[in-house]
């Protein structure tokens, strides 16, 4: 039985974590899921930790940066486009062609199905999209099955269970009640449901009272960790806060493309040094980018 004294001394646990501490949740060989908008402050911190051999559930240039920094052994991605710089992200393309990473070939509907299976504690869920394609041949984890109810041909997608999911959102209170601005991220709710633990970096910490003013707007209840990260999705967008920094992503694509098409990594190494390794914190990073460049993104 609790004594009255015990009850009155108990305080609710706050989930705000410093970015460097949150990054220690990610270690070599884990399955890491990264959301969209991309949680770049945490991604840069993970790269600085020198984590290796990750399996990354993610997409686009954020995944490409992790590959460029040597953190990735395997990708679970439905699309790794190069933004405005090209059809295929440069580091992903080179690493896949060289056999340096393994590509767990999938597709949006299939990936969603695997995440859903993990969230529901199931070994797999069936999906029809992709029947007849090469996906089950190039990814032996996808099994073509005959369903026991109607005898239809379907694909059994195994549960995809990230160790850690890292997301970027608008606001959270200190207890991990997260509210997005303009709808949740691209696959973010599915990543959170499937993962063992979820870190959400946010533009702003707000009061619990503000969350309770509109509980309908809470998209993720009880994130395991909340990290303060204003402008934390830069150079990508954060709805309600800023738009994508195209000049900056072009800088990365040019550097990564040069490294991919020749053996000359100097541009890419310079980029990584300046914007990933040298800044010790997210604040340092924002200073490296510069306030003029950042506030220019704060408009329609």
């Amino acid at each position: 039985m609790n004594t009255g004294a015990h009850v009155s001394s108990a305080t609710r646990h706050e989930n705000i974590v410093e970015e460097a501490d949150a990054a220690t949740w990610v270690s070599d060989g884990m399955i890491l899921a990264i959301g969209d908008p991309a949680p770049m402050a945490m991604i840069r911190q993970i790269i600085r930790r020198g984590v290796k051999e990750l399996t990354v559930v993610g997409s686009g240039l954020a995944l490409d940066l992790l590959i460029a920094a040597g953190c990735v052994r395997r990708t679970m991605a439905y699309y790794v486009g190069g933004g405005s710089g090209g059809a295929v992200a440069p580091s992903f393309r080179r690493a896949a062609e060289q056999g340096e990473i393994e590509v767990w070939e999938c597709e949006e509907g299939i990936l969603t199905t695997g995440l859903r299976a993990a969230a529901q504690g199931l070994p797999f869920l069936p999906w029809r999209g992709g029947v007849g394609t090469s996906l089950p041949e190039v990814n032996p984890d996808l099994k073509v099955i005959v369903d026991p109810i109607k005898g239809q041909t379907l694909i059994a997608v195994p549960a995809i269970e990230p160790d850690v999911a890292i997301l970027h959102a608008a606001v959270s209170d200190a207890y991990g009640n997260v509210q997005h601005c303009g709808g949740p991220g691209w696959l973010d709710l599915f990543l959170q449901r499937a993962a063992d633990r979820t870190i959400v970096q946010v533009e702003k910490i707000i009061s619990n009272e503000e969350i309770r003013a509109n509980p309908w707007a809470t998209t993720i209840a009880r994130a395991d960790a909340v990290v303060r990260a204003p402008y934390g999705a830069h150079p990508f967008y954060s709805r309600g806060y800023y738009v994508q920094d195209r000049a900056f992503t072009r800088l990365y694509v040019e550097a990564a493309s040069a490294a991919a098409s020749s053996e000359d990594r100097s541009l890419l190494d310079h980029f990584l040094a300046r914007y990933v390794y040298e800044p010790q914190t997210h604040g340092d990073y924002l200073e490296a980018v510069g306030v003029k460049q950042l506030i220019a993104l704060y408009e329609y």
């Binding site: 699309y79 190069g82 062609e97 070939e105 029809r128 999209g129």
Partner: peptide
Amino acid sequence: HRRLRFRGPGSVGTSTLATL
């Protein structure tokens, strides 16, 4: 598939959309 001459961007949502 492990050593493609040209690595494409990935299937996006086309496998499912083309099915349905």
